[in-house]
Design a protein around this nucleic acid. Sequence first.
DNA 1: TCATCATCCTTACGTCGTAAGCCTTATGCT
DNA 2: AGCATAAGGCTTACGACGTAAGGATGATGA
Lengths: 233, 233
Amino acid sequence: MATATGPARRTPRRRQTAQARRERLTRERVLQSAIELADASGIEALSMRRLGEELGVEAMSLYTHVANKDDLLAGMIDAVFAEITPPSLEAHWKTAMRDRALSVRAALLRHPWATGLMDANAAPGEATLLHHDLVIGCLRGGGFSFAMTAHAFAVLDGYIYGFALQDRSLPFETPEETGDLAQEMLAQFPAGRFPHLAAFMVEHVLKPGYDFGDEFEFGLDLILDALERHRED
Amino acid sequence: MATATGPARRTPRRRQTAQARRERLTRERVLQSAIELADASGIEALSMRRLGEELGVEAMSLYTHVANKDDLLAGMIDAVFAEITPPSLEAHWKTAMRDRALSVRAALLRHPWATGLMDANAAPGEATLLHHDLVIGCLRGGGFSFAMTAHAFAVLDGYIYGFALQDRSLPFETPEETGDLAQEMLAQFPAGRFPHLAAFMVEHVLKPGYDFGDEFEFGLDLILDALERHRED
DNA sequence: TCATCATCCTTACGTCGTAAGCCTTATGCT
DNA sequence: AGCATAAGGCTTACGACGTAAGGATGATGA
């Protein structure tokens, strides 16, 4: 043998240990697997042991690619931001911010655990910083002063994340479920204890076709229109 | 789940055992202690053992008053809602909703861990339901249709919770800290990587007197004014 | 060819939530 | 007043968690 294959850089030599080993671990693979696991089974199911299992590796092996669990979670958040289509600096600020808001919302629907992780007040990752950079650039380019940019950023992002939080905090997921759960909730208390809430449920929420998620665009446009009015303040 | 109702009241006979025992445990005392502990040391410091210690009791004794840790957390959330001054049904809807929003914000500043717990999508407690009932009543009384009430509720509460989440996710707490941290963050990447963000920091955020928390009222009034405009839609 | 070093694994520790069951003491009935 | 009951609090124990310490393996670079 002694093939002496000149190990010209990066020998793509395949490893073939006794048991066919999984592909080499990387931070990206760890993060991606963690995100898939959290998406599929909830963030509470994401333990280092379980994640290792998912990757065909022992829990401690993960620590080669991730400093600790907080680092893992921070990396996941940053990966979510990386999924978001950033606002275009060419388009009109309003449409750019609208599209971007919808993109954030879509990402948070794909990864509902993300909002819960955002209160970790850790240092934002590169994708997160880049995203914020472009949002600010978009607003500034649209004619917003620094002060108005700060205002606009606070309202818009506050609304986007808060809406996701609210959506997630609702104790029901599907419209069908809503009815039963609402009945059950109100039934625990004397009839007439929450008259306005009860009427609201009966007259609106329980009507066929209602879906809380549909509220998002109304609020978004409400805020965007209002910001347009204040743009020159 | 029916939460353990306290012991029958009957005789107020004072107990005096060998060792002066701490006051009798109640669900309220457990919840209050848990809230104090979370406020003082962060939600991650709240373990059943630690909470027991705080109350002079073993961890397992807490389970007489609380079904499990999730029930404890749900109870804490509901207690936070109970702290909020609900919207007056007499006042004009706009001022009532404004005062109430400020009251929610104040509560979330006092208990910053609350937003992180809100994605638990558990069944809301009595104080939470009552709060929502009055918010809906206030909007309906103010002339909002059911549909507009739903819209208004989603924007307002979304914004309030999202703002708190954003505030908490900032990696700095005090204005002084902001400068150092911002420098540090941007220094990790090539200069010019985040030009808009950098300019925004230098020209606005790092200017003396800036405090992110001050942004809250701008967004609140922006939304309230916009809602007023849509009230009759 | 060998030394180095990154990768992955084994073992172990302290902490967590909580199930099971015991002991003590207050309660409610006679 | 006396007693049966059950509620409140305690002890012990289990399995899962994050992760520190150090060992084994195999790829890389001299």
